[in-house]
Computed example of a mutant assay.
Amino acid sequence: MTAHIADAARDNWIIRFSPDPWRPYLELSRLDRPIGTWLLLLPCWWSVALAMPGSPLELARLLLLFGIGAMAMRGAGCTFNDIVDRRFDGMVERTRNRPLPSGRASVRGAWIWLGVQALVGLAVLLQLTPMAVWLGIGSLGLVAIYPFMKRFTWWPQLFLGLAFNWGALMGWAAVTDGFAAAPAVLYLAGIFWTLGYDTIYAHQDKQDDALIGVKSSARRLGGATRPFLWAVYAMTIVLVALSGWLAGLAWPLYLALVLPAAHMAWQTVRVDIDDWQDCLNKFRANKLTGLLVLAAIALGHLAAAPLPL
């Protein structure tokens, strides 16, 4: 019987349907825990929506490509992260049953699986504009250094934000083959968002992290986490609004941003940083936060569009 991974559902689709030899590698990619794919994908979709292709078919094509790319590259990033962190993961209660520390997958097999996922990501990337391709290549450095940051800085969540929100630049480039202030500001909004949700996530491991010497914003902030969440989530909403203004979106954007702002406020008020399950639940709730931001951007475009004659 496969050992249960703490933050995965006990009856997830991998356990129910995947062949036994595949299971550890699908788990390396976190395909049993899709929230990370959503959090990587949503800034891409925000940016595509901010630029808004002129054709519905092109919009659908880009949303699909970024969906496939996010799944592949999140899987590749998680596989690389687990290769780098396999010894630390074996010392942390939440992660000790992951495929590498538990011995259910080999390091060599993990590297091969990483390569397969990277090739899928490359195939998707080459369907985009030249500017988006170069931006995609440029993100690889951030992906490579992130797993090491917890050894050197109290703020690995910042480096995750830099890597995870790169799609906020790429989505715009995939539509326009260019760069502008609006996606740059949207990228900053995503970084602040990540600082919030990943600090909540990091509170799950703070006791084990302290024992083994791993750093995180959760350990650095401690009891000051709640004021920090108020600040970074407020900056997220302000910067999304500013990016919409720079892109010429209409007033419904600002009205609709009340909903993700309220959802972030709920997280901030209700999160119990000493309850790992509650931290995991609040972290997962950010899928809805991101979808509400996407809806707000779409509404801003609908109201800004000229009326048909």
Score class of each variant (00 low, 15 high):
residue 238 V to A: 15
residue 1 M to N: 13
residue 107 V to L: 13
residue 233 Y to K: 05
residue 33 R to P: 04
residue 177 D to M: 06
residue 175 V to S: 12
residue 302 L to E: 02
residue 87 R to N: 08
residue 204 Q to H: 09
residue 300 G to L: 12
residue 247 A to E: 05
residue 21 P to T: 00
residue 98 R to T: 06
residue 197 Y to E: 10
residue 2 T to H: 08
residue 276 W to K: 14
residue 83 I to R: 09
residue 23 R to W: 01
residue 273 I to C: 14
residue 1 M to I: 09
residue 38 W to P: 10
residue 23 R to E: 01
residue 170 M to R: 02
residue 104 R to S: 15
residue 200 I to F: 09
residue 289 T to N: 06
residue 155 W to H: 13
residue 70 A to P: 05
residue 32 D to N: 13
residue 94 R to M: 11
residue 216 S to W: 05
residue 64 L to E: 02
residue 255 L to E: 05
residue 32 D to V: 05
residue 81 N to I: 08
residue 156 P to D: 07
residue 23 R to T: 04
residue 111 W to Q: 00
residue 187 Y to I: 15
residue 231 A to Q: 11
residue 87 R to I: 05
residue 210 A to P: 03
residue 85 D to C: 06
residue 142 L to T: 07
residue 248 G to D: 10
residue 249 L to F: 11
residue 2 T to L: 10
residue 16 R to D: 10
residue 154 W to P: 07
residue 180 A to E: 10
residue 302 L to H: 01
residue 230 W to E: 08
residue 257 L to Q: 04
residue 5 I to M: 15
residue 133 V to T: 00
residue 132 A to H: 13
residue 134 W to C: 14
residue 152 F to R: 10
residue 111 W to Y: 08
residue 226 R to C: 12
residue 102 S to T: 02
residue 186 L to C: 03
residue 49 A to V: 10
residue 20 D to L: 12
residue 19 P to H: 00
residue 78 C to Q: 02
residue 191 I to Q: 01
residue 93 E to Y: 04
residue 58 E to F: 04
residue 171 G to H: 15
residue 294 L to N: 05
residue 267 Q to Y: 12
residue 63 L to M: 14
residue 168 A to I: 02
residue 36 G to Q: 13
residue 199 T to V: 10
residue 112 I to E: 03
residue 219 R to M: 13
residue 215 K to Y: 07
residue 111 W to I: 01
residue 97 N to C: 10
residue 193 W to D: 04
residue 271 V to Q: 07
residue 8 A to M: 15
residue 103 G to T: 08
residue 166 W to L: 12
residue 71 M to S: 08
residue 181 A to F: 00
residue 176 T to I: 08
residue 207 Q to V: 15
residue 28 L to K: 00
residue 25 Y to M: 00
residue 59 L to H: 07
